[in-house]
Amino acid sequence: MSSETAAAHETSHRVPYVRIYWILVAALLVSLFLAFMEHHMLAAALIFAVALVKAGLVAGYYMHLKFEPRFVVLVVVAGVVCLFILFGGLLLDIVHVYGG
């Protein structure tokens, strides 16, 4: 085993990747179902909540964030906060132009 393979082995964890995948697919189906709800504001809120869960699963298990030191998690959280500031700013602009 080369030193690089050994290093790769160190970051490996016993994670049920396939089970996580099926949860992600189920969450996608839930999002599609929610899109046809009559209460549009509630539907949008729930759809983004499901998206947050999906992103959390991918970041936590597929990107191994769940197994990284706390400061690495903080760096990622800072990026996510900036993303929401960007989305919020754009949303305000769109609501201003189209009147909601």
């Binding site: 999002s31 899109a35 549009h40 998206a51 991918v58 970041a59």
Partner: peptide, 27 residues
């Protein structure tokens, strides 16, 4: 692992773009 982390990040961006552009504003 490095290229995988990049790929998963691209996936996460789509996870938010899909509801934003296809689902949440259908009403």
């Amino acid at each position: 692992e490095i290229v995988g982390i990049y790929w998963h990040f691209v996936d996460i961006v789509w996870i938010f773009l899909f509801p934003l552009l296809y689902l949440a504003s259908r009403g």
